[in-house]
């Protein structure tokens, strides 16, 4: 099910077409939530919303990986962050939020 909000930091400075969105990885073994910024088009990964430090090394080749556990960010343990998760990461002030559905559809 599509999320009612699209949360992003800014347009991707690498590809110019993607949105730098907040991706969270939940490591089931350690039970902690890791956040990173992922371009939804060119898949560049940054460690935080300042977009200063890229993360290029991971366990899976040619795939964006979590800066913490190194696993693919397209695995089922990862997902686009929702607003509470963005708040939990302390990144609420760095993001822009766009409503993607009509108000009466939001539950």
């Amino acid at each position: 099910m599509a999320k009612p909000f699209l949360i992003y930091v800014k347009h991707c400075p690498v590809c110019g077409d993607g949105l730098c969105r907040v991706r969270v990885c939940q490591d089931p073994r350690r039970g902690r939530l890791t956040g990173c910024i992922l371009c939804d088009d060119c898949e560049t990964v940054w460690t935080d919303p300042s977009l200063r430090q890229k993360f290029t090394k991971g366990k899976v080749a040619a795939t964006p990986c979590c800066p913490d556990c190194g696993e693919s960010l397209w695995e089922q343990t990862s997902h686009w962050a929702d607003i509470p998760e963005v708040c939990l990461l302390g990144w609420y002030d760095s993001v822009q939020i766009v409503r993607t559905e009509q108000r009466d559809q939001i539950v």
Partner: peptide, 9 residues
């Protein structure tokens, strides 16, 4: 956008 001959987008 290409990584190691893999087309990304």
């Amino acid at each position: 956008v290409i990584r190691d001959r893999n087309l990304i987008t």
